[in-house]
Design a protein around this nucleic acid. Structure first.
Lengths: 163, 163
DNA sequence: ATTGGAATGTCAACAATACTGACGTAAAAT
DNA sequence: ATTTTACGTCAGTATTGTTGACATTCCAAT
């Protein structure tokens, strides 16, 4: 009886069910990155470049610090990636007018073009997964993802939604 | 009208919704690995060690080739990790009796202990996310994850469920 | 006006994780 | 007897991350 009550009210979770969730995340993340990775390979870029392109596109004019806090890496690590993207003219810098220490980041036309290619590939798989799973599943998917984030990232995630 | 029909039947997905899914995966994966990473750091191990421990625990007695196909890395990459785990006596080797070329992999007591530590931390976050999102969300979460995997990994994932 | 601190960039060194390619050994399969 | 398979290993390289140190630029407060 106690068991039945748990099942109904408390969300009864076996180790096995949790393990499935863990392995699901592991395997799904591989699928999630597979298509962009193939495109990036052709241009000799990596996932770090993809992430930078994605968020510069998402938040045009962002400064470096803001991008750092979204990406969760060190400035040295980001800088290497950013430098190549700027050299290759996928990203352009604009020095802040109000605060001239700040560098505002934008995608160039070629940058937008590559970002589009990458996001199209990734969205395609996401869309297909959503279609297979159905609308209710999608809502649940997002809820669990959001609950899995660190609180700070949850805030970042929500801010991106709004802007 | 056409729009309404799309919304109901076809699962109407805006670019914005897909982007949320993409960013959700990105941020959630960070949360997903954060707790184990902290533990691994203390022992000077990395995620690769965690993954090896996880799947050796999940499929005790697995041979190297099978583990390779689950993890999706090269044997050279896995070998480096496996060698340290064996040196540190977290993993033990047993030469196959039927086919003596095969090395069967098992966790030692210390291996089990570390794996337990890691999976407890990771499960704790997963359980908490499940609890916050609720049972329906969890079902949807798993469906979308599964649909996002490459077909081969989907098979691998399901095989692990059964065993 | 000088000073303190923040934002940024850069150099160097290092570590983890991945890759390719080549080679060796042992055992199984044909 | 030969080929294939399973596994290990050596060498070299790339990507992405880390610390630490140091320079520059510039805002803001004293």
């Amino acid at each position: 009886m106690q068991n039945d009550r748990s099942r109904e009210s408390l969300l009864f979770l076996t180790d096995e069910q949790l393990r499935q969730g863990i392995e699901g995340m592991f395997f799904a993340y591989r699928g999630f990155t597979a298509d962009p990775d193939r495109i990036l390979d052709k241009y000799n870029y990596g996932r770090a470049h993809h992430r930078a392109l994605h968020f510069i596109n998402r938040v045009p004019g962002t400064n470096v610090n803001n991008l750092l806090s979204i990406l969760g890496v060190t400035k040295q690590s980001l800088n290497r990636v950013l430098r190549t993207l700027i050299e290759h003219e996928l990203v352009s810098l604009k020095i802040g007018t109000k605060d001239r220490r700040e560098r505002h980041l934008y995608l160039t036309e070629s940058g937008k073009s590559l970002e589009k290619q990458l996001s199209t590939a990734q969205s395609h798989r996401m869309r297909e997964a959503y279609r297979q799973a159905g609308p209710d599943a999608v809502a649940g998917f997002k809820q669990v993802l959001e609950a899995m984030m660190d609180p700070k990232l949850q805030v970042t995630y929500k801010k991106l939604r709004v802007s």
